[in-house]
Design a protein around this nucleic acid. Sequence first.
DNA 1: AAAATATGTCAACATGGCTGACATAAATTT
DNA 2: AAATTTATGTCAGCCATGTTGACATATTTT
Lengths: 181, 181
Amino acid sequence: MQPPGKRLESAEKGASPLASVARPRVPTSEEERLIEAIELLFFSYRDFTSDPDTILEEIGFGRAHHRVVHFVGRNPGITVASLLDILRITKQSLARVLREVIERGYLVQQTGEKDRRQRRLYLTEAGAELWERLVAPQRERVREALAASGPGGETAWREVMFSLLDEAQRPDVEKIIIKEP
Amino acid sequence: MQPPGKRLESAEKGASPLASVARPRVPTSEEERLIEAIELLFFSYRDFTSDPDTILEEIGFGRAHHRVVHFVGRNPGITVASLLDILRITKQSLARVLREVIERGYLVQQTGEKDRRQRRLYLTEAGAELWERLVAPQRERVREALAASGPGGETAWREVMFSLLDEAQRPDVEKIIIKEP
DNA sequence: AAAATATGTCAACATGGCTGACATAAATTT
DNA sequence: AAATTTATGTCAGCCATGTTGACATATTTT
């Protein structure tokens, strides 16, 4: 255990700043706004995932199962390799979740027609129902949030969210999320 | 193992729709936009956390340590109970992370002056440096993203993000993230 | 003096990541 | 035709971070 270092000055009511304190950078107004934005992103994302979490808990699934159901529902016939690309996890991690989702009848595998090494993934009807249950509250939450902002709010929001992506990832993400009919 | 259910129609190139398929709801244009927004949130949040993740890995810390360092840095002198409220984890989970962060000299505890049961938390100078390292890339990413949107973009983005919060949580989150001088 | 509060700790367990090694079938290349 | 590459699966073990339950200590409040 290292010797305790000097404390930072306290900013909380009731806290007691001592004599020897590290001088924190005085935050500029812009810095303050940016930190608030960072924290807002943290808390909003947490609430955004809370509705599905509740449903998942009922049926003994976790977020990992949710992601699989969602991206298979959204990309019927997706290959295991493509799903791994989207989720960015190892095949061993995916295998475990995939097995459970298949065993419980939410998902089926179908040998690829052209390339018979592939195991293309599809939701069953039960899977489609589950996906709808999971996505409905999120869709509603996002719908209300976008509506609550003024005109042009949705566009601005999407621009900012898109710009938060790694520059190198933007084309990939666009390909993944946009489905042209 | 249940019998496999019927598959959904495929939408992916190369996929082979079979005879017996579940009829997915035909997504309206609004639904499509909302789903894209949901997925954008997922991918943006992932990239948003990727820079700190890299730094954390170097020093053998995880996201849990990051959260502790961040919210103690942002709320010097915060009590353990308040930190638990923010993080919404059990005290046993926090204890483990807290111990590691303290042992490695990034954080110190100080008995509360008024209430000597409290253990108020402060970053050491090393902790403040670490926090700055972690927050700098996120701040920069958010700064660029907000700047990339048109005028009023920041306001619209914040409105939407704020509306994504559970209604009941909004006053609490506002209290947590806004620090008036 | 008793009760409530703030914090800490021990033990056991679950989820969902990871690495490494190896196996199989099918497609591609030589 | 044989060799190689690719798509997928599997076994085994490890790690980070969450959980519940029970109990301990110091301090404050009633």
